[in-house]
Design a binder for these strands. Structure first.
Lengths: 197, 197, 197, 197
DNA sequence: CATGAATGAGCTTTCATTCAT
DNA sequence: TATGAATGAAAGCTCATTCAT
């Protein structure tokens, strides 16, 4: 029996997506039951299936769409930074950090729930993530080639930066001591100049 | 009916621990069934209960023992480095990275399965981890106080370092391109001096 | 929103009937979901209810209409055979077999899905089938009374014949080795004369 | 919590088999829920899985074991009948009918629930049944070769006999008007000599 | 110390059906 | 006439855990 007049299909789908982000982040994919998800949305568990294909597919959609959006917005941010390699690296760092702080739930899920993906979905997600990492590696390579950055193992440096920046999502609180801008400043400085006096 | 004469209890307990590390790392705590764990060990699920209290307790023991060992060995490593603040920080970084690369499974679990802990266990584990983080924060504060390190937000710097170093466990492969020593060298340099030319 | 202008209701109803015959025969009544039925027709499950009352009613209609048609056409066939008891029995046998071979799906359903009928519907269907069996029993009784058939237990003989003839629907294939006419010939001979030399 | 002292595993397994025969016969495989089966046995649904692999496997075991037993006992019965082809055919008929009347539930299931078998299981069951049918076809061929039976299409004759005999299971009631021996007599006569005067 | 059998709770998913649009 | 969204019930199955043996 439809409870509410008017087409609320898209609204329900959006609510499901939002609730899933919350519950997966909080309890993990395996630990989130569809009953709990439905209850959070305010519908019956069976009704979820008017909006999702399976629980697994719900997870994959969340991850895949996040990785897509991350990649596209990173490309835009770097492109706007011009040609200077350090400026481009700064743009990437700033974008990555801000985007991640904005989408903390998606980030958490895309990083920690990959193992819950079925093999086929996992392969696609890993390929998407790999492509993103390659963007950063290219930036570092360019910086080194133009003598703006010190020679180093570019892949390890990229992984180290990404781990550091992504890690910030784990503990950042919007109402905490530091603003996002300060966070960007601190991390950019740490990455570019290190902590030694 | 005991299959083998003689006490093989401790051996079984160790096998359980080892199998649990493997399966939790691979599939996650929620996704690891005790039946699968028992099968991996070669016993029936019911027999597990001669060696563990509950599934939850098994997880907590793994995490708590790991955090204890990490703390104690870190203290030893730093103490051996003498009094120079940068030398002490280098010792911490090297120890953290090497220890994490050795105990990749325990590290993974202690980082990603905290949310699976019951509140009481979670509180204890978080306190342990917090104490470890404070060790690093003190090192950085000391370095700044002695003008060996640049002034910065010490907590954020500590978190950033830990995230970077711990992240290496995720992708490091023992048979990979780089040795552990190289990894330590690269990360120490990155942390102390940054990547800018 | 109706997709096609103009009334295609009767056509849809016929498609539903046809698809139901196919799917119930193939998978059984319980195993056929209305979603699958609707998909086969090319509409949504909800739209089925513009053409059927319930799933149970759909089944009953199929069975009841089949039993009605069977009875009426049998009566016609026997009446056309004249007065000779053996000729009338031959007519019944031939008609039963040919009709069953033509309506294999309906026959299958009417025989194997009776147990899926609700009590009230079951009672009516059983009564219809019982009446049909009685027709054959009367034919055998007449034959015996006129010394054209050997005395025997008429009910058992009737059941045996019906089982044999109906069974042919199970394995008959229109493109098989034998024609329908040959099948009728073989079965009629077997029933009348047996297989002994 | 084990309710009853002493090992009642095999007993439970047998009860499950018996209850499954009853419920599948009565309602059909699809319509029998494992909860209902467990309730009939007096255990929880989950406990069924200490004795069966899956619902599908339970069905297959019932069918396969029945077909095996049928084949073996038929071979014994025919062998005991000596060399005369008609005596051997009589033995087969008598055995088939009596065995079927004894195992009405298994027979019903093996005939009407084949379509519920998964493809792999279906293939095996069909092969078993085919082998049984071939036994009868050989008997008829032998009879014809020795001029004890009239020439006819042996496969169709075999199918017709089997359908007739198996059909008796559908309506036979142990407390009915006719004894099993009379049933055998009537059917054997009908098959061998037909009903014509 | 290990086991087979049992349990109650819970899982994801499918079902027939309803109803406002 | 057709639809998408909803529902309550129920499905088969797995889970961690218990306990007498």
């Amino acid at each position: 029996m439809a409870r509410i007049a008017g087409s609320n299909g898209p609204r329900t789908a959006a609510q499901i997506r939002r609730a899933a982000l919350k519950l997966i982040t909080r309890h993990g994919y395996e630990a989130m039951s569809l009953r709990a998800l439905a209850a959070d949305v305010g519908i019956q568990a069976a009704s979820l299936y008017n909006h999702i294909k399976t629980k697994q597919d719900l997870l994959y959609q969340i991850i895949a769409e996040h990785l897509d959006a991350l990649m596209q917005s990173a490309d835009v941010a770097v492109a706007q930074a011009g040609a200077d390699p350090v400026a481009r690296l700064r743009a990437f760092i700033g974008h990555h950090l801000l985007y991640h702080l904005d989408k903390r739930q998606e980030v958490f899920i895309a990083n920690f729930e990959l193992r819950a993906l079925e093999p086929a979905n996992l392969a696609k997600a890993v390929a998407q993530r790999r492509a993103y990492e390659e963007r950063l590696i290219r930036l570092i390579e360019d910086g080194i080639a133009q003598a703006a950055l010190k020679p180093t193992d570019t892949r390890i440096a990229a992984y180290a930066m990404l781990a550091m920046l992504t890690g910030a999502c784990t503990w950042f609180r919007p109402d905490g001591r530091l603003s996002k801008a300060e966070l960007v400043q601190l991390h950019t400085d740490l990455i570019l100049n290190g902590c030694a006096a």
